[in-house]
Design a protein around this nucleic acid. Structure first.
Lengths: 116, 116
DNA sequence: CGATAGTTACGACGACCATCGTAATAGATT
DNA sequence: AATCTATTACGATGGTCGTCGTAACTATCG
């Protein structure tokens, strides 16, 4: 029998909460990494922050409904809730995972005006 | 000839920046409202914050590429960049606009464990 | 030209939160 | 049981940002 950390039910997921979870750069990186490896622990994720911080972010991701965490001995591997998110917010996760990086160019100031 | 406030080019849109823009509750409300009325000014949006704050949020939405703003006399009506966002991040905006509210129920604490 | 109304610019303040260091917990191994 | 390793819990701190009040700006109207 597998044991999991408690997570919000499918119908309780809030799009605003999910967006807040995905808004942080570090958490977005975590989501992208989990999109490639299917399952990973906090220490296995290669991130420029301390493990305690990674654990904090994974908690937020789980509480918002983005990932689910399994108990495997001393390890707590997490994975994306792909199917759940797809049912609740169709297209949201895929649009983020498939997003291409922006064209690396300096953008003009947006406070000015331009004729069209 | 219509005049518009400058906005980031399509290829310069960054999904992280867009997610940060959409993460704020007030900005998410603005996006939802613009999803219904097709075009609106800051004062026309019915929001529980001061107009100067609404203007601030609309600026962030425009700088992130979510909305575009037109100059019409003294008014500056903004609208969603639906087509652009759909081309850059297919499915992202629609998944947010079509998201249903969560089932209003108290969720259990997520720090505990549950057998499966 | 003067007045009015809508919008934005500018500081300033306060709250939230990402990050860290350390300590505590729990399972695995010998 | 003792030790080791992985993970989390706990404060604490510093920076970011949402919000506001006011002033400046711009276009329309009389």
């Amino acid at each position: 029998m597998e044991t999991w950390l408690t997570q919000p039910d499918l119908d309780d997921l809030d799009v605003g909460t999910v967006l807040q979870a995905l808004a942080d750069p570090t958490r977005l990186r975590i989501v992208r990494l989990l999109g490639q490896v299917e399952e990973s622990t906090c220490t296995a994720l290669d991130l420029p922050v301390k493990v305690s911080t990674v654990s904090h972010h994974v908690n937020i991701l789980r509480q918002s409904g983005v990932v689910s965490t399994r108990l495997d001995g001393t390890a707590r591997p997490s994975r994306l809730r792909r199917a759940d998110l797809e049912r609740r917010f169709p297209g949201l996760l895929d649009s983020i995972l498939h997003a291409t990086p922006p064209r690396a160019a300096d953008q003009p100031a947006t406070s000015d005006v331009s004729g069209a």
